[in-house]
Each structure stands twice: as C-alpha cells, then as structure tokens.
Amino acid sequence: MNKNLVNRSFLLGIYLTGSIFLSSCQDDDSGSTVTPLKGAYESGVLVVNEGNFQKGNGEISFINKQSKTVVDDVFLTENNRPLGDVVQSITVNNDKAYVVVNNSNKIEIADANTFKSLGVINNLQLPRYMVVANNKGYVTEWVSFSGNGRVAVIDLATNAVTKTIAVGVLPEKLLALNNKVYVVNSGENTVSVINPTSDAVETTITVDGSPNSLVADANKKLWVLCGGEKNYNSDYTIDENTSTPGSFVRLNPATNTKEATLTFTSKTLSPGDLVANGAGNKLYYQYGGKVYQQDITATALLTTPFINRNFYGIGVDPTDNLIYGGDAGGFAAAGKVVRFNPTGAAVDSFTVSIGPSEFLFK
C-alpha cells in the first residue's frame, strides 16, 4: 500500500476527530471551555405576566441580559397554546419550570431551558405560590375567598398531589428554610410552619395583621411583611379607629419567636412585595406607591423612598443587585419592566406582556 496514502488517511482521521471534538466543546477567546446552552432560556430573567382576569392571556416573558432583548409569550411560542388565566408565579427546580396559573386552577410544567411542555397538574383550588423542600413541591391554595386555605404537597416524580395541609386564611407566599416550610396567611395574622418530613403543621406563629410576603436574610432570620388589618366604613373608606398599621416582623426560625417589630405609621397604607438582595443584607418593599430599601441591621423604618415610583411587582437580581420593577400600565396594553442600579437610578426598560408582577433570575 502507498505509504503516503496511509499517512494522509491517518491525518484525515485525526482532523475529523478533532473537528468533532471542537464542535461539541468549543473554546472562547480567552482559551477557556464554553459549555453549550441547554436551551434558549437557560440564562436570563423570567418575567411572570398575570394577564387580564378571565381572558386567559397570562404569559412568561424572557429577558436576555447580555443582548438586552425580550422573547415574549415564551410558553405560547414553544407550545402553540397559552398558559391560561392569571399566571401567578413560577418556580424552577432541577431544570423544570412550575408555572402556577391561579384562575385556571393548575400548574403548567415545562423544561426550564426550552420551555417545552412536560405536563400539567390540574384540579388545584386557586393556587398561588410554590416552593420545593425535601424533594417535594408545596403549593399554597386559597380554596375560596373566605375560610381556611391549604398547602398541596406534590410528588415531583409523578406530579401527583399526595396530600393537602390545612393552614390559615388566604395563604400566600411561602419559604423553605432549615428543613421547614413557612407560610404567611394573609387573611389573618399568622405564619404556619410545616415539617416537610411529616407534612404536617408543626406550629403556628402569631405575627401582625395580613402578612403578605417573607424572606430570609444573611443571618438566616425571617422577615415577615404585614399589611395591617383593615376595616371599612359603609362608604368603603378605611376605618382608622379599628384598623391597624402594617409592620415588619423579624422571626428567629430556631425558636419560632418574634425578635423585633418595626411598625409603620399609617393605618390606611399597606406595605407589600418584600424581596431581598443577593447578599441578604438589604430588604426592598413597596409602600404608599414607592419602593423602599431597608438594611437588616436598622432599628427603625426609613422614611425616604429608594425609588419614587409605584410598581405592580418588584425583584432584585442576586448576581448584580439590579432592581426590577413591573409596570402593569393599567392592564390595558403590554407592560414594562424597568431596571434600576443599586443606587436607585434608572438603567433601562423592556416591553413585556400584560401585568408583569414576579421575576425569576436564572
């Protein structure tokens, strides 16, 4: 056999092998290996857009932070069908996105990176928010607009509801910490503490009226934001004689007791939308149509707003601490997301779908 032919064949084989290797695992300009994306939506910001009540036009938008572009109606684009009526929240676990659709009484499951549908959990009753603990999903359900709500326990391997746990009235956001699940009951003044091993309420903590959101800080303490109990006169104005102001309550999860309470002055205004920065040392919330920033070491509430603007929902990117505000614009047209730097100055904005309210940072 011709020796040169053998050598050329050998070299061609090396070249082809190297080409295949390089095409599957390329280097960037710095010489480091670049891992291919799992999908178009692997890295960026997922925006929850509630949509119009009873119109079935709730959706998820995706913001690419590098290119500063938006892919709107992601689920509809990838699956050729809408998510449903009032998209409430989204949770990502093990590359699966769980989208809670409140008025459609379901959770849509999609690949978190491609947003291709993976299944549906039906027959929930006014579901609100979800967390994952002990390899199970925990979903707050209002059940009705009066009376006690519950938390549905979901087997994430089969997507089946295995149990429901009775909690307080109108359960809202929940948080998993130290192998416990904490649930704020917004229709009363309590936080339910669920043990995810037994899937039972371990204890109930009394806070202040209408708790609506909670976060864990850098010291693993729980901050609960309470809107205050509001009673109304016959003309639908708030009765200040019988109503209570909102408050911040700090809980020690080791003992499930109150450590501190910071009380607002107004009995008519209700603080809400509590979120924290990536380090867990700054808290952000809305109050009186403005956004406030609170240090976790502060012993009094700040009176100067951080951002002098009202939003339908807020979030903080844990990687760069940019603050995101969702402007619903009266639900008459597409909403906007406005970004602010950590000093409170506006950076840029993006057009999204109707009613942007929640943010998930990937």
Rank of each mutant, 00 (worst) to 15 (best):
T255F: 04
A328W: 09
T203M: 08
Q125V: 06
A97N: 07
E172R: 11
L126P: 02
C25I: 12
K180N: 13
G315K: 08
F10R: 07
S19K: 14
V74F: 08
A254C: 08
T164M: 10
V153R: 07
L22K: 13
A328V: 14
I296Y: 00
P196M: 11
K163A: 14
G119F: 10
Y324E: 00
L222V: 00
F75Y: 15
E59C: 09
F145L: 15
L322K: 15
T33R: 14
Y287N: 03
D208W: 02
I354T: 14
G44H: 01
P342Y: 01
P305H: 08
V34F: 06
P171R: 06
N341G: 12
S349A: 13
V86G: 01
E259K: 05
V86L: 11
G329Y: 04
F350I: 04
V291W: 06
T268R: 10
I165F: 07
I296S: 00
K3A: 08
M1E: 12
G330M: 06
G168D: 02
G44V: 05
G228V: 05
N57W: 06
K116Q: 14
Y287V: 09
G288L: 08
A276I: 01
G31A: 09
V151S: 00
A298M: 06
D95F: 12
F115L: 03
S234I: 13
G31Y: 01
G325I: 04
D85T: 11
V215D: 01
L156W: 01
T197P: 01
L360R: 14
I20F: 15
Q88N: 12
F340D: 03
V215H: 05
V34E: 03
F248C: 04
A260E: 15
A279T: 14
A300Q: 11
C25H: 15
N105M: 07
K290G: 12
V6N: 14
N4S: 10
D155P: 03
E188C: 11
N57E: 03
G313W: 02
I60M: 09
S146E: 15
I354A: 12
K116Y: 14
N64L: 03
G329I: 07
L126A: 06
N178H: 12
Y15W: 13
A332E: 13
T69F: 04
F306C: 05
A279K: 10
S270H: 07
L156C: 10
I14R: 09
F361D: 07
N321P: 04
G227D: 00
S353H: 05
D111V: 01
A110C: 08
D327Y: 14
A112V: 03
K180W: 09
E78D: 04
G330P: 09
V275A: 07
V167F: 09
F75K: 11
V132E: 13
V167P: 05
Q286T: 15
K136G: 00
D295N: 15
A40R: 14
Y232D: 07
K282V: 05
K362V: 04
T304E: 10
Q125C: 06
F311K: 02
D28Q: 05
L126C: 03
L5H: 13
A333H: 08
L11P: 01
T158Q: 11
G39I: 01
S266G: 03
V169H: 06
E141W: 08
V74S: 10
V143T: 10
G137M: 04
T304K: 09
S353Y: 07
